[in-house]
């Protein structure tokens, strides 16, 4: 019968329309927010999330813009894990990393620590290669995607200070990775 296909299709849309309200009204109370519900594969109803009010927590491997891990030493001095070996700058597909190595002020001998560390975030394509190939677990990918600014000259070039984030932050955003890396570190330390 002509037109039957259309009517059948329209029932699908009507069903979708009503489940949107139904799920929000009844199931919403149990599952609290849509952001929490969306991650589940059997989620029904309205799919979208009202962004600034509700935020979907990204999964652990999610990656935007690298950051440098530091541990806080005595007097609150930042001790970067980075040894300025330069592997990250070498593997970077867009070549957006710039490092210079620190020199001892008295003897002029190089110290295994970065003097300068810049990342041009305009060029960075968030591929994660630097974090993947860093042998010291010093550079990792961030979760903070709200990085829009009003000025696009200087603010888009991240210096060492801006890139640095404490180890606790890393442990917070990537607990599983952090735990496994720490286990390996302890093992290595106990062997030596």
């Amino acid at each position: 019968m002509n037109g039957f296909g259309i009517v059948k299709g329209l029932f699908v849309t009507i069903k979708h329309f009503f489940t949107t309200y139904w799920v929000d009204l009844f199931h919403g109370k149990k599952n609290k927010t849509r952001a929490a519900r969306r991650g589940m594969v059997d989620s029904a109803g309205l799919f979208t999330v009202q962004y600034p009010e509700e935020i979907i927590i990204p999964s652990e491997e999610f990656r935007v813009i690298p950051f440098l891990i530091y541990e806080v030493g005595e007097n609150g001095v930042r001790k970067y894990r980075c040894t300025s070996c330069g592997i990250c700058a070498k593997v970077c597909p867009t070549q957006c990393i710039y490092i210079t190595r620190k020199k001892d002020e008295v003897t002029g001998k190089p110290i295994l620590s970065p003097e300068e560390f810049y990342i041009d975030t305009d060029k960075c394509m968030n591929c994660g290669s630097c974090a993947e190939f860093c042998p010291f677990d010093a550079i990792k990918m961030d979760h903070d995607f709200e990085i829009a600014t009003y000025e696009r000259g200087e603010t888009h070039i991240y210096s060492k200070e801006k890139l640095g984030k404490p180890l606790e932050y890393y442990a917070k955003i990537r607990p599983v990775n952090y735990a496994s890396e720490e286990a390996v570190r302890h093992e290595k330390a106990s062997v030596h």
């Binding site: 002509n2 296909g5 259309i6 059948k8 299709g9 699908v12």
Partner: peptide, 26 residues
Amino acid sequence: KHLVENRLPRKIDELDRYLTKNEIVR
């Protein structure tokens, strides 16, 4: 696993029901 075994086949069937026999589409 859940997506492949439960959700997607159901949703593809729904898309099928919704569009394939639609006279305008045809």
